[in-house]
Design a binder for these strands. Structure first.
Length: 702
RNA sequence: GCCCUUGUAGCUCAACGGUAGAGCGCGCGGCUCAUAAUCGCUAGGUUGUAGGUUCGAAUCCUUCCGAGGGCACCA
């Protein structure tokens, strides 16, 4: 019976639309999955969406949908993207698109809860207990605030909400807790003793030092009255499970843990050898929490949790809407071959580190490595076979009496030298692949390509053809090039399934390379006499200037569009909250409050022009502005925009300023007002309020 | 604020105590089978800064400057 291999991407949170990050993780998982299948393993590949929680409710409310409609929409969009990029089941991609709103998952995760509750922690305590979750709560936001979401004003003890700048309430609610604090020693032993478990090493060290800092018990439920969109806690109708327990357990429920619907997939079979791919931002949850949960339930642990890095723009900055440096997956799909994108993603990023992604870099890679490199090697080889040998692959054997001629042409009569090189490259490639060193593995393959190119250039087949005595030398060159290409197709198949299949069939072969184990490749198995198939460019050269222009025009257009509010969102938002609230919005804490015109007029909004904008040393978020409001001198105003805007680019811009806001000190600097900006989601880039018409500095808004 | 990582040729990175390398890009030359592809050659770095340890430092230690990351209930 074949060994099994189970690989997962995170299930993506269904509150935002698909982006490059989703695509990247899923492509890597797909590559690994195809590779393991080639190696003969019985694999299972999971991706999907995480569909519960307060943020889903909010996203749904904002879009005027029910939570179910919201998650159906987002998971549909994600599936569409995966389909576009050939990652779906029909194309040999994922085996299951998991959704946490499915009934079998409810069953499974409830079963898991009960199993955990039955057991004791490593220190002999109850694993789950009832207590109170206490935190700083902002009523207008209707949520608990974490440390980075509030600030302490000078002289005050009660923190203020960063959004509303009003005091938070200290409140508590009943909650079930998982006794995570009992798992610190267990986790440290586990992670420190198994270097493969948490990778890469730098992240592993971070996780260990985090655990050493001490673990707090984890709240794993919320009262139904505050969060209703979730899996009910077994035997307590007042609670639903809170995010992580629900989300993480998808990896086991999807293959049949605790439910009968998926039992046939085989929990016992696949759960014995698991690899989780995650983004570095959620590594902790997949190690500290997940390993503890599993252990508490008496279940086997995954073999590897690998955290990959983030894609930055070509200049190394985070991608964001305001900077306009987001890589648009639809643009990728429209302008680039899927396989070129796959190759780029694996070749350009050292897996585990951050990487830079620019369309220009992608084009350069595609042109130099794929078109000029692999593609051209195929093209020149097949063309020579067609021209010189009527399209039939000659034998690579050189008779002894011709050795001298071969040597004269710079060709080693003994092909064993090349075979050793190739075998070594293959073994090394596989080793690097096992270690998730994709970029190194691919780099190595390209040294082989260079070697064959050099063999051709050195032996000059176009001259060999003129000399009858060199017929066998020429044959050997052609055979060696073609046989090497066959090997490369098999090796590169997981990364570029489509292109390698094409090249393979251009060689004239028809087996399914998805099922050929590269470890079993043997030199010489390519038969002489093979008829070269139809040849056309597998990697067409990309006209850089042209494509870059098209992309620029396109993003200019879509930029304008996204500056306009999307109709569906607008419609929903313009409804009174009571109507837009949907099914689950609790009405108690969203009391509708109207203000009088007098109230509004108390707020002095004025047009200001930014004269100076600069970063503040050691402050991640704050920018310091000097803004001309038509007063004697410009005002100093601080605003938390540093993550979203380049200060230099803001100079000269006219903005809306709250002019009579009580001055306040931040980082030792006094802020004399506030700049108005709009954002839908909290993590959205705030858009600065501005004017289409020319307007005088100091003008009042009313 | 505390902790960690990092700063090497135009770009991406390698060398991790012993005369600084590769790929891409640039320049020149050769070749024509090939997707203006390919082959060869050249150029270009006092290895962020200032000290120290050592026979010898990009590599170890310290200072400073710059960049990135981690410091939990948000998936």
């Amino acid at each position: 019976m074949a060994q099994t291999y189970y690989i997962t991407t995170p299930i993506y949170y269904a509150n935002s639309l698909p982006h490059l990050g989703h695509l990247y993780t899923t492509i890597v998982a797909d590559v690994v999955n195809r590779h393991k299948k080639q190696r003969g393993l019985d694999t299972y590949f999971l991706t999907g969406t995480d569909e519960h929680g307060i943020n889903i409710q909010r996203a749904a409310d904002k879009a005027g949908r029910s939570p179910k409609e919201q998650v159906d929409f987002v998971s549909g969009e994600l599936k569409r993207m995966f389909h576009d990029f050939g990652l779906d089941t029909e194309k040999g991609g994922y085996d299951v698109f998991m959704r946490t709103t499915e009934t079998f998952h409810y069953e499974g995760v409830q079963h898991l809860w009960v199993e955990i509750a039955k057991n004791k922690t490593p220190k002999g305590n109850e694993t789950i207990y009832k207590g109170f979750y206490e935190g700083w709560f902002c009523a207008p936001c209707a949520e608990y605030k974490t440390e980075d979401q509030y600030f302490l004003a000078e002289g005050l003890e009660i923190p203020l909400c960063l959004i509303h700048e009003r005091p938070l309430d200290r409140i508590s609610e009943e909650s079930y807790f998982f006794r995570l604090s009992d798992y610190d020693e267990f986790l440290i032993d586990l992670i420190a003793n198994d270097p493969k478990l948490v990778q890469p090493e730098s992240r592993r060290n971070e996780v260990i030092s985090f655990i050493k800092g001490g673990l707090q018990d984890l709240s794993i439920s919320r009262e139904k009255k505050s969060v209703s969109w979730g899996v009910p806690v077994p035997d307590d109708e007042n609670h639903v499970m809170y995010v992580w327990l629900d989300a993480l357990s998808n990896y086991i429920t999807a293959i049949g843990y605790g439910n009968s619907e998926k039992a046939s997939i085989g929990f016992d079979k696949y759960w014995q050898n698991v690899t989780h791919l995650v983004g570095k931002d959620i590594l902790r949850f997949h190690t500290v929490y997940w390993l503890s949960f599993l252990s508490a339930a008496g279940l086997p642990l995954p073999k590897t949790v690998y955290a990959h890095g983030m894609w930055l723009d070509a200049d190394g900055r985070k991608m964001g809407k305001t900077l306009g440096n987001v890589i648009d997956v639809d643009v990728l799909h429209e302008h680039f071959q899927i396989d070129a994108t796959r190759y780029f993603l694996l070749r350009e990023m050292v897996f585990g580190q951050d990487g830079k992604f620019g369309y220009e870099n992608l084009i350069d890679r595609a042109n130099s490595d794929l078109a000029s490199g692999l593609g051209n090697l195929g093209s020149r080889t097949f063309s020579m076979i067609t021209k010189y040998r009527e399209g039939l692959l000659p034998s690579g054997k050189i008779a002894e009496e011709n050795y001298i001629n071969a040597k004269r042409a710079g060709i080693n009569p003994d092909e064993q030298e090349l075979v050793s090189v190739l075998e070594h490259a293959r073994d090394e490639f596989l080793r690097r692949f096992e270690n998730f060193e994709f970029s190194l593995a691919l780099e190595l393959i390209w040294t082989v390509i260079a070697r064959i190119d050099k063999m051709i250039s050195d032996s000059k087949p176009w001259e060999l053809i003129k000399d009858e005595k060199q017929a066998e030398t020429l044959n050997a060159v052609l055979y060696r090039a073609t046989e090497t290409l066959r090997w490369l197709c098999v090796l590169l198949y997981p990364v570029m399934p489509d292109a390698t299949k094409k090249i393979y069939s251009q060689i004239g072969l028809s087996e399914n390379i998805a099922a050929i184990d590269p470890a079993n490749l043997k030199w010489g198995e390519l038969n002489a006499g093979t008829k070269i198939g139809e040849t056309e460019a597998v990697f067409p050269r990309i006209d850089k200037a042209k494509v870059m222009n098209e992309i620029k025009e396109q993003s200019a257009v879509s930029g304008q569009q996204s500056a306009e509010p999307k109709p569906e969102v607008t419609a929903a938002e313009s409804l009174p909250p009571a109507v837009a609230g949907g099914l689950t919005q609790p009405t108690d804490n969203t009391e509708q409050q109207f203000i009088d015109i007098e109230d509004f007029l108390k707020v002095e909004l004025r047009v200001g022009q930014i004269m100076v904008a600069e970063r503040i040393p050691k402050a991640d978020k704050l920018l310091r502005f000097e803004i001309d409001l038509g007063e004697e001198k410009p005002r100093q105003i601080l605003a938390g925009l540093a993550e979203y805007y380049e200060p230099e680019k803001l100079i000269g811009r006219k903005v809306v300023v709250v002019a009579n806001l009580k001055p306040r000190k931040m980082r030792g600097l006094e802020s004399q007002g506030m700049i108005c900006a709009a954002s839908l989601e909290e993590e959205d880039t705030p858009a600065l309020a501005t004017f289409l018409e020319d307007v005088n500095v100091g003008a009042r808004l009313k």
